[in-house]
Amino acid sequence: MGGTEHLTVDRQGATLVLTMNRPEAKNALSLPLLVGLYDGWLEADADDGIRSVVLTGAGGDFCAGMDLKALAGKGMAGDQYRDRLKADPDLHWKAMLRHHRPRKPVIAAVEGYCVAGGTEILQGTDIRVAGAGATFGLFEVRRGLFPIGGSTVRLPRQIPRTHALEMLLTGRPYSAEEAARIGLVGRVVPEGTALEAALEIAERINACGPLAVEAVKASVYETAGMTEAEGLAAELVRGWPVFDTADAKEGARAFAERRPPVYRRA
């Protein structure tokens, strides 16, 4: 199991929990954190025993974005990881889910600050739970910067354009309640319970057929830019093979026998 000094990895049953662990900096993105995140996505993809991923932050915050001190030229922790970045100059974008989409469902458990790069990573997750005290926002324009983690493309596709543009162009903070109202997150829970709620969602996913879950996720994303006719045709290509699997037969058999199914990814 991987991890770095700024990213901890924990296995809870069939769920991989990735915790951004730099609480003294509100989990601002560092090189060790980015390397740890990318390695975590790769581990989830490679291990068929992992059926879901939960992404969260330590110390009461999710992620406050890029380390602005490093951006100002004051150095970034983790020089020992620079060879990884040289070998794969795209690593940071993959870590932030800009250029990589895990095949397993990713659930974000957000507490505290989830701003700038934190809100950008959030847009790469599939299901989002926020504690009532969470704060969201894309603050880049306030610093004369551009939210280059994908927000000008993704955000207007995920929430109404008027809300996306207000968030992008004002750089103001959003409460958890407002983030839920505009559709940025799906659920708001009492402060301090986001991880618990995310793990409950993960357990529900883990109880489902993994081949079906992964095919459904893939279909949702690959048809997003298609016309309805194209999307429906692509859905059949993804969906029909699932019905021929042993897992599909096991699901039907377990239902008839009134017992929990035992799926084997077959």
Score class of each variant (00 low, 15 high):
A58C: 00
A58H: 01
G59M: 06
G59D: 02
G60H: 07
G60A: 05
D61M: 08
D61E: 10
F62C: 07
C63A: 14
A64T: 01
A64K: 05
G65K: 06
M66S: 08
D67V: 00
D67M: 02
D67F: 01
L68F: 12
L68Q: 02
K69N: 05
L71G: 05
A72D: 02
A72H: 01
G73P: 04
K74L: 13
M76E: 10
A77E: 07
G78W: 02
G78P: 04
G78E: 00
G78K: 00
G78N: 00
D79I: 03
D79C: 01
R82C: 05
R82E: 13
D83R: 09
D83T: 11
R84Q: 05
K86L: 04
A87R: 10
D88I: 00
D88N: 11
P89E: 00
D90R: 07
D90H: 02
L91P: 02
L91V: 08
W93T: 10
K94T: 05
L97Q: 00
R98W: 08
H99A: 12
P102Y: 06
P102T: 05
K104N: 08
P105K: 06
V106N: 03
V106K: 09
I107M: 10
I107Q: 07
A108H: 13
V110T: 10
G112D: 12
G112R: 13
Y113T: 15
Y113F: 15
C114N: 13
C114G: 12
C114A: 14
V115S: 09
I121N: 05
I121K: 03
I121Q: 02
L122S: 09
T125I: 00
D126V: 08
I127Y: 14
V129E: 08
A130E: 06
A130H: 10
A130Q: 12
A130V: 02
G131W: 03
G131A: 07
A132E: 14
G133Y: 09
G133Q: 14
A134F: 15
T135C: 15
F136M: 15
